[in-house]
């Protein structure tokens, strides 16, 4: 996994609530057996009309908005556990998703793929969306080490929470498999003890 420490970039606003993983990547694109190329179909049914033509009204098709941050409405990533949603966002080029609330499984999936989900207060989210909408070139600083998000143009800043263990993983590019493999003997001991207590019960 790539290391994540800090970035400064512009953002794409998508102020829709309850964006579910079926919208992020529709099921018909889940037939692939590897992790690459999902970015092409990110938000597929919002990006394209049914006849296959581009939907000019959708924000990803609007050249005004660019950057590695996606700012989305409340309860982002609800629904299916498909990690393909995180792969699609990352493959498309997003490194950070900002929302006032994330669904559990999505949050874990994002973190496992080096995509940082940042939960901010609803007020900060509103003001962030407003600023970015009016001034698309606004640069946003994301600092994982010090856990803050900062708008260079307005000086607004908010701290965010992240599990200390996950933070270390992201900053060092480690993943959970490495850690779990280091615990194999403890896991085996746990299995043996359970088996013993069952037999002697």
């Amino acid at each position: 996994m790539e290391k994540f420490i800090s970035i400064t970039t512009s953002a794409v606003p998508l102020p829709q609530e309850n964006i579910d993983t079926d919208q992020i990547i529709p099921a018909r694109f889940l037939k692939a057996t590897n992790r690459d190329g999902f970015g092409e179909n990110l938000f597929r049914d919002w990006r394209y009309h049914k006849d296959g033509s581009l939907n000019d009204e959708f924000v990803l098709n609007n050249n005004t908005y660019k950057g590695q941050i996606l700012i989305a409405g409340h309860n982002f990533g609800c629904g299916s556990s498909r990690e393909h949603a995180a792969w699609a966002l990352s493959d498309y080029g997003f490194k950070v998703i900002v929302s006032s609330f994330f669904a559990d499984i999505f949050k874990g999936n994002a973190l496992n793929n080096g995509v940082l989900p940042i939960q901010v207060s609803p007020e900060f989210l509103d003001s962030l969306l407003m600023t970015v909408k009016n001034k698309p070139e606004t640069q946003i600083d994301i600092n994982l080490e010090q856990q803050y998000i900062y708008l260079t143009s307005t000086g607004e800043k908010e701290n965010f929470e992240i599990d200390a263990y996950k933070k270390t993983c992201l900053m060092n590019g480690y993943d959970d498999i490495d850690f779990l493999l280091s615990k194999t003997s403890e896991i085996e001991k746990f299995e043996n003890q359970r088996e013993l207590s069952r037999v002697s019960d």
């Binding site: 556990s81 874990g108 496992n112 959970d176 498999i177 850690f179 779990l180 493999l181 896991i187």
Partner: peptide
């Protein structure tokens, strides 16, 4: 509970999850 594919790999590797 449901898990993502990275976690499927974790359970494959260790029968555990963090």
């Amino acid at each position: 509970f449901g898990i993502g594919t990275s976690q499927v790999a974790q359970v494959f590797a260790s029968q555990c999850l963090l």
